[in-house]
C-alpha cells in the first residue's frame, strides 16, 4: 500500500474562462486505489478541471502527466486509461437501453458481449426496461445507464462529474459500491460532487476550490 503507483499528476496547472482565471498553480497527484473528491461552489472550475484531466481541453498553464509522462489534450494514453463521466449522459433517445449500453461500451473500448451487458443492466435495475427506447427513460434511469457502463469499465482512472445527480438513494448506494470496488481493484477516481456520496475508500483526499 505504501508504494502505490502514481497514475495522474498535475504540475502548476492553471485554467481560465475567457479573461477570468479559474484556478492556477494547482499541483496534485492521484495514485492507484485513491479517491480524490473535488469540492467547491458552482463556477469555481471543477468541471473545467475534470475535462482538462481527461484531455478535453487545454490548460492555460502547467502540465498534466499520465504515469509520469507529459500528455497533451486528446492524448492516446489518456484516451485509453481514463473514463470521463460528465453532465451529459451520452444516451441516444432512439436506441434502446441495451443498445445504448452496447454502443457506449464499444466506444469506450470495452468488450460488450451480451451476457455481461444484460447482467450489468440487471444490477442497475434496468433489465426489465432493456428493450425500451431511451426516450421513455427518466433522467435518473439515464444516469443508471451510465452507471452500468461504469460497472464494466476497466480504465484505471475514473473522472466523475456530479455522478450522483438525479440518482435516488438506491442508485447512490450502487454508485458508491461501484466506485469502491474499482478502488479495491487498484483503480483511482476523481469525483466532483456537492453531495456526500459515502464511498468507502482506504485512501481518500479532498481538493477544495473556492
Amino acid at each position: 500500500m505504501s508504494t502505490a503507483a502514481v497514475l495522474l499528476e498535475t504540475r502548476e496547472l492553471g485554467a481560465r474562462r475567457g479573461n477570468v482565471e479559474l484556478f492556477s498553480g494547482l499541483s496534485f497527484a492521484v495514485t492507484e486505489g485513491e479517491l480524490l473528491t473535488v469540492r467547491g461552489p458552482n463556477g469555481s472550475g471543477k468541471t473545467t478541471l475534470l475535462r482538462m484531466l481527461c484531455g478535453l481541453g487545454e490548460p492555460s498553464a502547467g502540465s498534466i502527466l499520465w504515469r509520469g509522462e507529459a500528455v497533451a489534450a486528446f492524448d492516446t494514453a489518456l484516451r485509453q486509461g481514463v473514463i470521463y463521466f460528465g453532465h451529459a449522459t451520452a444516451v441516444k433517445d432512439e436506441l434502446t437501453a441495451i443498445e445504448n449500453l452496447e454502443f457506449g461500451l464499444a466506444l469506450a473500448g470495452l468488450p460488450a458481449d451480451n451476457a455481461v451487458v444484460e447482467e450489468a443492466l440487471r444490477q442497475v435495475g434496468l433489465y426489465a426496461r432493456r428493450q425500451v427506447p431511451a426516450r421513455r427513460l427518466s433522467q435518473g434511469q439515464r444516469r443508471r445507464l451510465g452507471l452500468a457502463r461504469l460497472l464494466l469499465a476497466h480504465q484505471p482512472l475514473w473522472l466523475l462529474d456530479e455522478p450522483g445527480a438525479a440518482l435516488d438513494r438506491q442508485g447512490l448506494a450502487l454508485l458508491a459500491q461501484t466506485v469502491a470496488e474499482h478502488l479495491l481493484r487498484g483503480g483511482a477516481a476523481l469525483v466532483s460532487t456537492h453531495q456526500d456520496l459515502g464511498i468507502p475508500a482506504a485512501r481518500a483526499r479532498e481538493l477544495l476550490f473556492q
Binding site: V82, A88, A90, K92
Partner: peptide, 15 residues
C-alpha cells in the same frame, strides 16, 4: 448536444 461527441473524442478508438 447529448454528450456522445465528447465521448467519441475521448474514445480509444481512432477518431
Amino acid at each position: 448536444a447529448d454528450g456522445t461527441l465528447e465521448q467519441m473524442l475521448l474514445s480509444p478508438l481512432p477518431l
